[in-house]
Design a binder for these strands. Structure first.
Lengths: 243, 243
DNA sequence: CATGTTCAGATCCTATAGGGACGCCTCAGG
DNA sequence: CCTGAGGCGTCCCTATAGGATCTGAACATG
């Protein structure tokens, strides 16, 4: 049982161990934070499929840490809805969306996001507008192949666009409310396994939201966002398998 | 070091140990769940004041459990915004609301709750309507003394009213979004330490939301809810200390 | 007086041990 | 062949040990 000083076992990639940059501790991260991010990435990337059990001990072995930080990371993850826990039975990845779940999610987004867009519009500054423009540009240039690795960037840019708008409301509660949905939005990708089939339409809609924002018309921005979400819903419901 | 078999240390009040009723395990709860609920109650009741440090080891000693379940409970709690964590420094109770925080919270509620009311109205059934009526009755009959213990019931009924409406949307995401805010709504009580000064007005507003719901007019229900939240904001902002 | 240093106690964090529950496989008996 | 009991491994859960880190106070120095 080889172990270093303490609290730091011999690890495969010691360079990405703690939140250090050029030898100086910057952000003071602990092991549980790393496990959290690792698990979150696995969930988002689809490496962990819905329904799969996420064993505490197994994950600990895999990441070469003790079960304690894994337990803590999973406790945090549970609150995001990405994993579910049954007492004494462990965690498993939340199940796939049904059509009803998806409709509910869109209904919730329809309640929150147009408000975000409206408020963001009244508080927009040039720097943040530039970020949004960059994100839309990323969206346009992202590859859209059939496999997940190929449309990953596209999805990330999409998610970032909506998240930026939430952040620009300067309202921590709206950011929080969107974040609670945001994790789910990502999971939607697993909904029936449909790829990106509506990129052209979606990009145009994002662009029109952006135009309304930069035009400084809050009502128009809210309406554009509402229209976008409704269209996304319609297209997805048409595409999705009956199940 | 006296200890029972394992996983169950000698405890002061063995009767409230696990989720047991008449000796049979009913809900399969684990220690971390109990710690979570205990901490949540302390937070909600105001026994833990904002800014106070919540020591892991100290809480463990106090509840007579090991630090492991406490750590897990706090990890979950952090995601609700009730406590904040700084790596290697521990947890402390989230700071009091400022006027801006409060305004933001009301803005967020204004985005979500009228939608909830509208949707709840379209999906209301007699049983659930009765629950709502009972809650408004509770609100009317609750004592409203100056100390926290005296207006605790009032606040609970108030919170329950809004929560019931969220649940009646039958939309897990809207319930989740409201729940994320709900914890904060409770914390608002600490905002300046003002007691219940607007009970008569608030009760009338709740009643009119209920009337609109039972009347089956979604638009009216949404409008009544929006009006209620706006009034709450106005009254609180007028009452609240300048700071 | 102001500032930097040292040291002790509290606290955080991770690892590890070990009990109980559950599932799976084997294997004996009908 | 089918069935049920028992062994074995895995996993969850909690407790405990001990190194790492922070905090605050006493103390030294310019």
């Amino acid at each position: 049982m080889q172990k270093a000083s303490n609290g730091t076992r011999a690890r495969n990639r010691p360079e990405d161990q703690l939140g250090r940059k050029e030898g100086r501790t910057v952000s003071r991260q602990v092991l549980a934070d790393h496990v959290y991010e690792e698990l979150l990435a696995s969930l988002m990337d689809g490496r962990l499929e819905p329904g799969t059990a996420v064993s505490i001990d197994g994950t600990a072995r895999e990441l070469d840490v003790s079960p304690t930080p894994v337990r803590e990371a999973l406790a945090r993850l549970e609150h995001t809805g990405m994993v579910r826990r049954v007492a004494l039975k462990g965690y498993r990845v939340a199940p796939v969306f049904t059509r009803e779940d998806f409709a509910d999610l869109m209904e919730a987004r329809l309640a929150i996001e147009p408000v975000n867009a409206r408020l963001a519009c009244t508080r927009l500054n040039p720097h943040r507008l530039a970020e949004l423009e960059q994100t839309v540009a990323d969206l346009k240039s992202a590859p859209r192949g059939p496999s997940f690795a190929e449309y990953k960037d596209y999805l990330e840019a999409d998610e970032r666009f909506h998240q930026l708008i939430a952040q620009q409301t300067d309202n921590q509660f709206l950011v929080g409310a969107y974040a609670a949905l945001g994790g789910q939005v990502q999971r939607f990708r697993l909904f029936g396994g449909v790829g990106i089939t509506d990129a052209e339409n979606a990009i145009a809609e994002h662009q029109s939201v952006l135009d309304a924002l930069s035009g400084g018309d809050p009502e128009k921005a809210g309406a554009a966002m509402a229209a976008h979400i409704q269209k996304v819903r319609e297209r997805a419901m048409a595409d999705a398998p009956e199940e």
